[in-house]
Design a protein around this nucleic acid. Structure first.
Lengths: 230, 230
DNA sequence: CGCTCCGTTGAAGAGAATCAATGAGCGTGG
DNA sequence: CCACGCTCATTGATTCTCTTCAACGGAGCG
């Protein structure tokens, strides 16, 4: 399904997909992979574009290929609560059962592989190894969600901000932020002003640099980790 | 596996299990059900007893038959963060993948059906309908966890307490609380004093009664719901 | 009766939200 | 090229909620 250069036609390029190794389709090979790829549709999402809407009939599922998506629910006052992020190789949507409980929106320009439930389910019927991969991933996601929830409970604003930075940091020192301050606030349950102040405070203490609005440089990662948990 | 009267021996009593209709084993019938039941062990848990420990090798999974369990992680300062509850027919533990990220402890006297991974996985291999049920439940649980997370973000202490009461209320008016004030606080990310004060405030406004420490009577459920979301 | 555990209540303080203003980056258009 | 408007982020002053620290009360139990 991966088509980096072309939106249309041709044979499946799943074998070249950079997300495949860690995605649920990573368990497929050869013909199975080709068959599966043919069921899906590669789709590019511009930043801010929504893939699924909260409350809509959940008629499709997707694998994230590149970019970052947010899972969010809207409160009564128009306020948004972000309940999770989806990174490359992550699976979004529910293949069976009830409607999607949250909307899925691209935080940055992203690519996904979109599958209709109508063909995804039957494919699983014939490919138990992939259903197994899906079970494993679902439980891993559940664990991650709970870990995040634990991070949010009874921690100071500064600790939440620090933990979020660390959660988005891979091995490198410079973290690109896939979200605005407002979205960081919506994710952490804080206000935009508090997020800004805490970032400023961390920078003032020399733990981080803020080269521009969309990136953070971790100057003292160990100290940041200590601050996040203590 | 259900043995309400006897701890030991005899033939499986799964057919009489009150949780079966909604549990993942509900998709099994006849011989399959008997085979599955023979894999598991019925276990009673006294209030406070822990079924699985955080960080331990996740060598087993369980279905809840009766009672309520808490899923919790311990912070650095010995403080506990409860990240979820497991009610009858709920599934706890992860069948594959990494170790359990949180400990599972009985809030009240409970019964579970415990299955070793070593036999649970192979059984799933032969029973795709049950694996399907497991997938469906895992995604439903994920949705519930995110819904709860949304409830915790950017809501006042009063709203959190009200929402928790409503979440534990079934159709009846009187809600039995399966947890102490401390545990309510650990679940909501508040302090025990704040929980107590908010309950008192709700009672003072005539929305609830507090007949004793372990129960709440919903006097004006509609008003309570309005208060919880607004 | 005295003990402990749990819950409630009170007073003080800290932390985050709120309200309000300023500043930086960016695209548009003059 | 620079002025303008717009969005997003930062900063300040104030308010308010929740926490913290502390004392008290009631239920269960030896």
């Amino acid at each position: 399904m991966y088509r980096p250069s072309e939106e249309t036609g041709g044979k499946s390029q799943c074998t070249a997909c950079p997300a495949r190794a860690k995605a649920i389709c990573g368990v497929l090979t050869g013909d199975d992979l080709a068959t599966f790829g043919a069921l899906g549709r590669h789709r590019r999402l511009a930043r801010g574009q929504t893939l699924m809407w909260e409350g809509d009939a959940a008629d499709s599922v997707a694998n994230v290929i590149s970019g970052v998506l947010k899972l969010a629910t809207a409160g009564v006052g128009g306020d948004e609560q972000i309940v999770g992020l989806a990174w490359p190789a992550d699976f979004v949507g529910s293949p069976f059962g009830a409607a999607c409980g949250c909307s899925v929106t691209a935080l940055v320009d992203s690519e996904v592989c979109l599958f209709p439930r109508a063909t995804f389910g039957p494919f699983l019927d014939d490919h138990p190894e992939m259903e197994r991969a899906l079970v494993t991933r679902a439980f891993a996601d559940l664990d991650k969600a709970r870990e995040f929830q634990a991070m949010l409970g009874r921690r100071s604003a500064g600790q939440k901000v620090a933990a979020l930075l660390l959660a988005m940091a891979d091995t490198g020192d410079v973290v690109f932020l896939p979200m605005s301050r407002q979205e960081m606030a919506d994710l952490l349950g804080l206000t935009i002003e508090t997020v800004s102040r805490q970032l400023g405070r961390l920078a003032g203490q020399g733990l981080i640099d803020l080269p521009d609005r969309r990136s953070v440089r971790l100057r003292r990662r160990d100290a940041l980790e200590a601050f996040a948990v203590a």
